[in-house]
């Protein structure tokens, strides 16, 4: 459909438009948020305007190539976090490394916390789980079951306690007993729920964890963008710290349920700049992977 305009002087915006529109549609079909798809196409367009088209190339191929590069750049983390290295560094300082799992309701925080615990165990790291979802029915028993199956210590104070305090006591207990890592489970909350976002910001402020891990599901549509930008904004706004802690990394779950609709990964990273540190791809402990940037880029453009 896209005619070759090889030989023409310089690329103009209008030359690029139809190829970019087709690409934008493709991204949206793959579940990239509308706003992100539009922004990406605009920046690709801007990067190509005025460029000369080499002979024997088509506009659609040059657009696709530029988009692939842009996607690759976005998905490749700027800041890299090496949890295993940082765990050992914390150990040398005589304190446990603390990860807090945050996110909206039902995305897979508790299940993937258990998967991360299992992964750490495989690296001979001792773990304690902290049951700081003191709200949702069955949340404590859920974590208790995982702790029992994995033979991991669980710190819990039942329901209706202040989760910030439970986390603090868990960290103290882990320090006393020489645990390497504390994994803090929190209750799911909607990004717009102010009291709950305040409570989360308090938990993070009081305990200053090593890693604030945002758990988001690959199934999410346009709301994924809103979730990440609001968690970051609210954590900043409601914190009493002068330099508030925001989202450090992303754990993308339910990757096994979306076929080729992998767009949420892109939306989440684009909007937050945080790296995808783990990908959950099933309901078993071993179903935790690293993000394959190449595969995502290929799938998005196919």
């Amino acid at each position: 459909i896209f005619q070759s305009i090889a030989g023409k002087a310089n690329l103009e915006k209008s030359d690029l438009e139809s190829a970019l529109n087709a690409l934008k549609d493709r991204l949206m079909v793959k579940n990239v948020a509308e706003e992100i798809a539009v922004q990406l196409c605009e920046s690709v367009s801007a990067s190509l305007e005025g460029k000369k088209l080499a002979s024997f190339t088509t506009v659609s191929s040059i657009v696709k190539k530029a988009m692939a590069e842009a996607l690759e750049r976005i998905l490749t983390p700027q800041r890299s976090i090496d949890i295993l290295r940082d765990v050992h560094a914390a150990k040398e300082q005589g304190r446990p490394y603390v990860i807090v799992f945050v996110g909206v309701n039902g995305v897979g925080k508790s299940t993937n916390l258990a998967k991360v615990a299992y992964w750490l165990q495989q690296h001979n790291i001792s773990v304690m789980m902290a049951a700081c979802d003191t709200f949702r029915s069955g949340a404590v028993e859920q974590l208790k079951t995982h702790a029992r199956r994995l033979q991991i210590n669980l710190f819990e104070k039942g329901y209706e306690k202040d989760p910030a305090i439970v986390a603090k006591e868990a960290i103290q207990e882990a320090t006393r007993s020489g645990k390497d890592v504390v994994l803090v489970d929190t209750a799911g909350r909607m990004q717009g729920n102010e009291p709950l976002m305040r409570a989360l910001s308090k938990l993070i402020y009081i305990n200053n964890p090593d890693l604030v891990l945002f758990v988001g599901e690959a199934l999410v549509g346009n709301d994924g963008v809103d979730q990440l930008s609001n968690f970051n904004q609210k954590l900043g706004e409601f914190s009493t710290a002068s330099n508030p802690r925001l989202i450090d990394g992303i754990l993308l779950t339910k990757f096994d349920t979306i076929d080729d609709k992998v767009g949420a990964a892109l939306s989440m990273v684009y909007i937050s700049g945080a790296p995808v540190m783990f990908v959950g791809c099933g309901q078993l402990y071993q179903d935790l992977k690293k993000l394959n940037v190449d595969a995502i880029v290929k799938t998005l453009l196919k």
Binding site: S110, T111, A114, R136, S137, G138, A139, V140, E141, Q142, L143, K144, T145, H146, R149, Q283
Partner: peptide, 16 residues
């Protein structure tokens, strides 16, 4: 019977 804590969750909700 699959999800950890599923029965506790339903039981606590139902009891409430």
């Amino acid at each position: 019977t699959f999800r950890a804590g599923a029965f506790d969750q339903l039981k606590q909700n139902a009891t409430k």
